[in-house]
Design a protein around this nucleic acid. Sequence first.
RNA 1: GGACUCGUGGCCGAGUGGCUAGGCAGAGGUCUGCAAAACCUUGUACGGCGGUUCGAAUCCGUUCGAGUCCUCCA
Length: 490
Amino acid sequence: METNQLYLYNSITGKKELFEPINNPYVGMYVCGPTVYGDAHLGHARPAITFDVLFRYLKHVGYKVRYVRNITDVGHLENDADSGEDKIAKKARLEQLEPMEIVQYYTDRYHANMQDLNVLSPSIEPKASGHIIEQIEFIERIIKNGYGYVENGSVYFDVLKYNEKHNYGILSGRNIDELINNTRTLEGQEEKKNSFDFALWKKAQPQHIMRWNSPWSVGFPGWHLECSAMGEKYLGEVFDIHGGGMDLKFPHHECEIAQSVAANNKHAVKHWVHNNLITINGQKMSKSLNNFITLDEVFSGKNALLNQAYSPMTVRFFILQAHYGGTLDFSNEALLAAEKAMARMCKAFDVIDKLVISNTSSIDFNSYKKRCYDALNDDLNTPILLAVLFDVVKSINLIKEGKETIDAVNLSVLKEIVSGFFNEILGLINQSSVSTKSNSIDTLMEVILELRKNAKTNKDYATADYIRNKLSEVNIKINDTKDGANWFIE
RNA sequence: GGACUCGUGGCCGAGUGGCUAGGCAGAGGUCUGCAAAACCUUGUACGGCGGUUCGAAUCCGUUCGAGUCCUCCA
């Protein structure tokens, strides 16, 4: 699709911009992945799905995409920690486990959640702990260029110095003067020249279990460094897209920009894309606020905030029903609405193979297809795309009822729309058609429905209702239609 | 306090200077032994107050409210 023009909102310019790869047809995309010290929650599903769709769409239109999503397994500090203690190390002590054991455990669980959500694996999933050498080398370059200083075994980034020639705050719209006035006084800041300087390398305290040798001290890399180092390693000094949650804009991504400019004298990222947050009761869902629902809990329904379990596909649909740039508020009502909406869509798609093919078509499915592309090309507008697909659903139903017609050519376009946009790009899976594929149960139900049909013919409604009610108790639902009865598992 | 974002019908959520978003719920209907489901039809919303305009929910100002960030947490 050479004519396809994707416009993406660029956080750094604040405008929708035509996406043009630096090195067509190759596209490099880096997205901040999870910190693996706990189970993923609903909030983590949002960036994963957002950038999964972007990844899928870029591939769909013909680009060769290398998608790098990191695993953060070192270097992060507790929000409320007494004294800057590595998050993972702390949990390790509490649970009497090796840090890497925890990393492995939660990484596996994260992967399982992602698979449930039908999120494709990234091309490369690098771990911070596996790139200590690259990070040290990156720091050396920053120091050599005069933007880092060593103090007591730790290395800090000199923001003020950087800001003389460059613009610190370019992404988040902050300026240094405000940072000076507004930064709170915190403990453990004495080593830094300025409160807003950030660490590139941190000397390990005795309680830190995760530690590596470096030219400056035995310690661990700073919190923003891994993305700069790994992005450069796998995507080059300059690459196309960097994604992540809104909450990462400052300081994380701001610091990344500063690091890359300090090391290479150029901006590493052409296009910044930020997804918004999932809120609950209007507030950000996060670990620190302790108002989160893990994905496992959503899928099982085991959380006091949940009225029921919601399938991974319901969650995916729910997230896609909102534009990635806006907040999305969690509620049982909204999840339930998504579940029903998705079911209705799937049921319509199920009847496509049973549609009667006419000589002419009263509906032009190519125009739907165009609207699908238009929706995605306008800053990945998945809610609009879903609205178009609901128009398609309506058309399918009208054809089914004989009120509209479809010919063979349009039928193939219709199938293309479903497999292309619904399955391939949005990554949704029609589970109603998948779950009923069991030969023995099919045969069994055929027999039962036959017996019930006979009962109905004989006006033995007591027996007919008995069959229906009893099976309903085990979630096998029977519906009578004018073409006979059908059944499904609820 | 500062930076930024947002405020749309019962709920979720698009959009935008004049033309139906969509979904869920509700209402009416079709179908039907009954039920359920399915399908069809249906709503006239854009925080308050000013202003610009032939015309604003959409632009500007102001006000109220909410949120995110402002930390050595991604």
